[in-house]
Amino acid sequence: MSIINSQSEIKRSKRTIDLKSPMGNAYCLMAIAQDLAGQLGRRNTDEIIEQMKIGDYENLLNVFDREFGFIVDLLR
């Protein structure tokens, strides 16, 4: 499982989302997750979004990272 990276650790081959930007908004991240899940042909899209909503913002980030960390780096 990947981790949430600092700017110096970002690998440029992945998409990067700066959590301090508007893209780091919880609703934006859920929309991105839904879009990515669809592109990847995931059948459990609703389950992923529900898991993101269960806890706080850190939980949302952890679920996002668990599901999409292999193609997206989250930048703090």
Rank of each mutant, 00 (worst) to 15 (best):
M1Q: 10
M1D: 11
S2V: 11
S2P: 12
I3D: 12
I4A: 07
N5G: 09
N5K: 13
S6P: 02
Q7K: 14
E9I: 06
E9C: 07
I10F: 03
I10V: 15
K11S: 13
K11R: 12
R12V: 12
S13P: 02
R15M: 15
R15C: 11
R15G: 04
R15P: 00
I17C: 05
I17A: 06
L19N: 04
L19M: 06
K20F: 07
S21W: 00
S21A: 10
S21L: 05
P22K: 09
P22R: 09
P22L: 07
P22W: 05
M23L: 14
M23R: 14
G24K: 03
N25Q: 12
N25W: 04
N25A: 12
A26R: 10
Y27L: 13
Y27E: 15
C28N: 14
C28M: 15
L29E: 01
L29K: 03
L29V: 03
L29W: 04
M30G: 01
M30P: 01
A31R: 10
A31G: 11
A31V: 07
A33E: 02
A33V: 04
Q34N: 15
D35M: 12
A37W: 04
Q39C: 02
Q39D: 09
R42C: 01
R43H: 05
N44K: 05
T45H: 02
T45N: 07
T45Q: 10
D46K: 10
D46L: 08
E47I: 06
E47M: 08
I48K: 00
I48V: 09
I48H: 04
I49F: 05
E50S: 13
Q51I: 02
M52Q: 01
M52F: 01
K53T: 08
K53E: 14
K53Y: 04
G55L: 07
G55I: 07
G55R: 08
D56A: 11
Y57M: 12
Y57V: 07
Y57W: 07
E58K: 13
N59Y: 03
L60I: 05
L60S: 01
L60C: 05
L60G: 00
L61A: 04
L61I: 06
N62M: 09
N62G: 08
N62V: 05
V63Q: 06
F64Y: 05
F64N: 00
F64R: 02
D65M: 15
D65V: 08
R66K: 15
E67T: 02
F68S: 00
F68L: 06
G69E: 00
G69Q: 03
G69H: 02
G69F: 04
F70H: 13
F70Y: 12
I71N: 05
I71F: 04
V72Y: 04
V72A: 03
D73N: 14
L74S: 00
L75Y: 07
R76P: 08
